[in-house]
Simulated scan of single mutants.
Amino acid sequence: MTTSGPLGASGDPHEHDGRARSRWAQLTRFGRRRVRSGASRARSALVPAATSAIAAVGAYVFAEQVLGHHQPIFAATAALIALGFGRDPRVRKVVEIAVGCTLGILIGDLMLTLLGANWATALLVVFVSTIVARFLDSGVIFTTQMSLQSVLVVLLPLPANGPFDRSIDATVGGVIALVITLLFPKNLQREPAEGLRRLYSTITEVLRDCSMALRTHESRHAWMGLVSCRGTQSILDDLRKDLKSAVELATYSPTKRASRQILDETQDTVEMTDLAVRSLRIVARRVITVVDQAMLDEDGMERLADWFDEAADAVAILGRSLSEPGVPGRHRSLSVARDALGSATAQLDPAQLGANTLHSEALVMLLRPMMVDFLEATGITHDEAVSYLPHLS
């Protein structure tokens, strides 16, 4: 008879050791993942951390050494709050937060002067500052920080030179945060380039899905492409936000005005790509119809599948071109992409692609405006893009 002991149900010490080793291996893998992810976060935080430190200490030193304020802690805290630790400190956002911090402290100073330092004043100051913070910004963290600043105004001892020194300190912190944002902005092209890579990678896959649907006579591939295509709207929305922030900084920053040209070109590219994606959604739905209702013979299916593959290759080249950091290199790469797109566009004749039914002809005709939009995304005019289309008899 087998008895159950402390080593497990079977009492086998090898089984117990195996479970212990398995748990240890899991813990080790978990620890390694945490260390890698933590190291990655720490590396990406090096520049923001250094910027925050410079802003906070610089504001404190300026208020103390230049203005002669005693322990100007609100200069440092206002600089940190205004600068934030996000990936895209916008000029308008920094100004709004700096003004909000200053107003919060000013409200506390005024109420402290009029009502005196007591619990009722502290209650009123926190309430009013919270309302002002919610009016200025929707972020919960900002509201919490502003409320904390306002209650500190009431609870900390009055400065030697009077209560309003703290409002001046907050203004100093906000101004220094704004100056740092303007003089040392982030890489303005990195985030739009990353967004464009994601967008064009998805577009390329959608075109390949359409090719696969035609080649295999399985419309589910086109359905998958259609779902992916619909999901590009969030990427486009994020791209527009990133570009708006980047253009804003390039407009006001004396060190980044040279980036304005490529950012303006990128904005035009995003708008034309948006139009092309809208057409692509319609194309994917038409491919589903053509495949499900067998509206093309085998030769027509193969020709159109080959065309979608060629278009996918051309769009992939365009996506890589748009991530080029320098203007000259970008323009050279876009010229290559334009040639590839133009070659695919020149084939969009229903007869040439074997589209011999009404629905298949409609599919080819839908491809024509889509490719014109992709060509315009390379930076050429509408008339130049249209000139790549073959004349229809």
Rank of each mutant, 00 (worst) to 15 (best):
S259P: 06
I107A: 04
L280S: 01
L341W: 02
P13W: 05
R21D: 07
I262C: 06
A20K: 15
L296C: 01
E265S: 12
D309N: 10
F30L: 14
A276F: 06
A340G: 02
G58C: 08
D137C: 07
Q26C: 04
Y252C: 00
R278Y: 12
T251W: 11
L156D: 01
G104F: 00
L182E: 04
Y388R: 06
L214T: 05
L182D: 05
L112A: 06
P369G: 06
E96R: 15
T144E: 10
R220N: 09
V283H: 07
A79W: 00
S10A: 13
F184N: 08
W119H: 12
T378I: 09
L80N: 00
F62I: 14
Q267S: 14
P192G: 04
T51Q: 14
I380V: 08
A250M: 03
D373T: 03
R21A: 11
V227A: 11
G104M: 07
C229F: 02
T345D: 04
K244S: 14
G174K: 02
D169S: 06
L80T: 02
V132H: 08
F127M: 13
T121N: 01
F127L: 15
L158R: 11
W24T: 14
I54E: 00
L296E: 02
V91P: 05
R190Y: 08
P254D: 00
A42S: 12
G342E: 00
L148N: 01
A98T: 05
P89Q: 03
G58W: 06
S129T: 15
A294R: 15
D274K: 15
G38V: 07
E265I: 03
L83P: 03
V179G: 10
P48I: 02
V386M: 10
M370Q: 12
Q233T: 13
L322P: 07
H14Y: 09
A133Y: 04
E15M: 14
Q347N: 08
G342Q: 02
I107H: 02
T255P: 04
Q261P: 05
M272N: 15
F127Y: 13
V386H: 07
A344N: 03
D309K: 07
Q149W: 07
A98R: 01
P72S: 05
D383P: 03
P89D: 05
W223V: 08
L27Y: 11
V290L: 01
A133W: 05
S253K: 06
I73P: 03
M1A: 14
Q71E: 10
A294M: 13
E310W: 09
K241M: 10
A78H: 00
R320Y: 12
L280W: 04
V47S: 00
L367G: 06
A337N: 04
S343G: 09
G31M: 05
A160C: 00
A122H: 01
